[in-house]
Design a protein around this nucleic acid. Structure first.
Length: 169
DNA sequence: CGTTTTTGACCAGCGC
DNA sequence: GCGCTGGTCAAAAACG
């Protein structure tokens, strides 16, 4: 399982990726297999899984984390410049608005991450010739959402952004 | 026949 | 205000 996680790496130059809101912390995965997808899904589920996931990143077993890694999953990290906008900072400090983005090299438009999603929107965005797709978790009362879009820089990659925490397994 | 997708309309936030 | 932009709604269509 941990060997799957080591496929991820953090790129400090990607904070200002125009495809992503600047407060996002992107991780890259050159090959995202099913196990890794599950791990991300677990991370989104609970605090315990979240801590477990963070430990995997921080452990010395894999050197995927930069020396000055100080990201917190609640969005309050000072490694991400949230600017002077306190209202925005507050907004992204809540668990409900917690976001997590990563990039995957894949031909597939839809990736199975273990959850069932209902598509509720599709939008062309100014910064990209590729559409952005909006999904919501199909589970009753679960407000987790995700966005999927092809990377502007390299259309071989898909950028997935999760928002919120699942209230179920 | 229930669930999901499609798609334009609608809406809210922001800069001017 | 007004227009631009991105996120969501919802009705109809498609799906299985």
């Amino acid at each position: 399982m941990d060997s799957n996680i080591s496929q991820f790496h953090q790129d400090s130059n990607t904070y200002n990726n125009p495809n992503l809101d600047h407060q996002f912390m992107p991780y890259y995965a050159d090959q995202l297999n099913d196990s890794a997808c599950c791990r991300i899904a677990n991370y989104l589920m609970s605090d315990e899984d979240h801590e477990d996931f963070e430990k995997s990143f921080l452990s010395g077993d894999n050197n995927i984390v930069s020396e000055n890694y100080n990201y917190k999953f609640d969005g309050s990290s000072n490694s991400v410049d949230l600017g002077k906008n306190k209202r925005e900072l507050k907004k992204y400090n809540t668990q409900e608005d917690l976001r997590f983005a990563f990039r995957t090299k894949t031909d597939l438009e839809v990736m199975d991450d273990g959850y069932k999603w209902r598509k509720y929107g599709k939008k062309m965005v100014k910064s990209s010739p590729n559409p952005r797709n909006y999904y919501k978790c199909s589970s009753e009362g679960c407000n987790v959402k995700k966005r999927v879009e092809r990377d502007v820089e390299d259309s071989n990659y898909v950028i997935t952004t999760y928002q919120g925490l699942h209230n179920h397994a």
